[in-house]
Amino acid sequence: MLLTIENLQAEIDEKQILKGLNLDIKPGEIHAIMGPNGAGKSTLASVLAGKDAYEVTAGSVMFDGQDLLELGPEERARKGLFLAFQYPVEIPGVSNKLFMQTAVNAVREEQGLLALDMFDFDEYAKDKIELLEMRPDLLERSVNVGFSGGEKKRNDIFQMALLQPKLCILDETDSGLDIDALRLVANGINALRSESRSFIVVTHYQRLLDYIKPDFVHVLYDGKIIKSGGFELVHELEEHGYDEIIQQSK
């Protein structure tokens, strides 16, 4: 198992959002998580990534054989947990390239590898830049500053390609992408698929899932997974919406 979530409960500002969530992910699997607005999808992603504001009140999370909840967010990242944010953050004054070089080197240090200098990094980044068709100016500019919504999302996937994580959590990466960008991002994800790498893909739409064909689909509602199934569950949801499943779960 790469990730085992058991009875995860978490709150923010004393409001309980996750209410006993279970999920098992094996290496190489792609899990899609769908669910209505406010269900707790981003909360789950943030808790897994270790955001301070959330407090875990019960349950456990094992990641690659270790207690994930024990680790700080930067340690989780260095051990291979990656989150593509629903709203990627702008960092003024720091070039995207320096930012990514620093991040890649932080992960390499953890793995006992030598740091890449600017030249090594350029070499290393080349095929990832091509894969996501990143415009050169986006690398020179400050991280996400003045990027369009779609460019920000694509930048996050570019970072993912550079960091080569074990678990990729994508929080609505497909929202706000035009048709071409969606195809690029899907290609990026597919190019990263491997037997050892797993994905959690949070989305509201079938479009992205059509490209990447998830192994499992889960419906998250009110802080719990109320239904799990295969790819066919996506069609069911597209046709009937969440109401029926929610009613059944009660």
Binding site: A49, D52, A77, F85, I91, F99, A103, A106, V107, L163
Partner: peptide, 12 residues
Amino acid sequence: EDQLFYCKQRGI
């Protein structure tokens, strides 16, 4: 906080 979390999430 958001910027710092973003950096930390990338291992920095």
